[in-house]
């Protein structure tokens, strides 16, 4: 069954800006799906329409088979939303924020409070339940928003940049929790600027740009499309002149550090042979950027060349 199905979804704002140009997108039940795109590409508009915060101009939205136009309440009950910005009442207690959200979905106060405790506990906020929200740290506020979105046990969780501004330790603990949630059957749609996050978590991906879906594929297939990989090489001795290596593109970062673009067909093994022929000894190797980031940047740059800013 499809968790989400968008058909010819279009949005034109009052100022005439066409944010979505009739997009089509399907997300299967149980998927961990990445929706990526540069700023202003249409991600937030898409999420806004699905979660009833933005009125669509035309097109259809189905969530678990429910039509947003005719079965709005069923659609709403199926979705949990973690927005980009912290948007809870900063003066309320964490427990009340989650329990009130459960109440809006028709869960009685007594059960709502129990559910709030459960969600806060799972997200490591059990001891902060009676804390006023504004006193929580940035990472805790992000987790509180996830707890709030889970208050009514939604089947589809939409996370709009959930780890923005969160330190790496908390981000990774959130990944563990989201993976676990996905394993228990919750479909997750994620937008993020940390492409490493999408590459690590998501099985399928759509890239949106200028209001159009420009790529929609399984993560493995998408990454397979890359025709080269970039690495950083740490050298034993400083390099005076940059050697010319056929097929490889070398860039000097500093005297002892090089960046190299390696075409897939040549591979990295041959690079080491050539470097040692030139008397260059490599002592360290790491990825210059993650593969998805590389793909994403290629896509955005190609698009920028085709549509230069006016």
């Amino acid at each position: 069954m499809k968790a989400l199905s968008l058909t010819e979804l279009r949005k034109v704002y009052k100022n005439g800006f066409e944010a979505l140009k009739g997009i089509n997108l399907d997300v299967e039940e149980g998927d961990f799906f990445a929706l990526l795109g540069p700023n202003g590409a249409g991600k937030s508009t898409t999420i806004g329409i699905i979660s009833s915060l933005v009125t669509k101009t035309s097109g259809k939205v189905y969530v678990f088979g429910h039509d947003l136009d005719r079965e709005t309440d069923d659609v709403k009950r199926s979705i949990g939303l973690v927005p980009q910005e912290v948007n809870f009442n900063q003066f309320e207690k964490a427990r009340d924020i989650v329990a009130n959200q459960a109440g809006y979905y028709g869960i009685r106060r007594k059960q709502a409070l129990l559910r709030a405790d459960e969600c806060l506990e799972v997200l490591g906020l059990g001891d902060k339940r009676n804390e006023t929200a504004r006193l929580l740290s940035g990472g805790m506020k992000r987790r509180l928003m996830i707890a709030r979105a889970l208050a009514h046990s939604p089947r589809l969780l939409i996370l709009d940049e959930p780890t923005a501004g969160v330190d790496i330790e908390i981000r990774r603990s959130m990944w563990v929790y989201l993976r676990q949630l996905n394993r228990t059957g919750t479909t997750i749609i994620l937008t993020t600027h940390y492409l490493e996050e999408a590459e690590n978590l998501c099985r399928n991906i759509a890239i949106i740009n200028h209001g159009e879906i420009v790529e929609n594929n399984a993560m493995v297939n998408l990454l397979g499309k890359l025709d080269n990989a970039s690495f950083i090489l740490e050298l034993r001795k400083p390099l005076e002149t940059l050697p010319m290596l056929t097929g490889y593109q070398l860039t000097r970062i500093d005297e002892s550090t090089l960046s190299v673009a390696v075409p897939i067909e040549l591979g990295i093994h041959g690079l080491f042979d050539i470097l040692s022929q030139h008397g260059i000894e490599v002592v360290g190797l790491r990825n210059a950027s993650n593969r998805l980031e590389q793909f994403f940047m290629n896509l955005v740059e190609n698009d920028r060349n085709e549509h230069p800013p006016s």
């Binding site: 309440d73 709403k76 927005p83 910005e85 948007n87 809870f88 009442n89 959200q101 809006y104």
Partner: peptide
């Protein structure tokens, strides 16, 4: 208005209220 300003009105808008 505070709910609109802080955007926590969205808590109700996304729910079946």
């Amino acid at each position: 208005y505070s709910s609109k300003f802080q955007r926590n009105i969205e808590e109700m808008l996304i729910a079946p209220v």
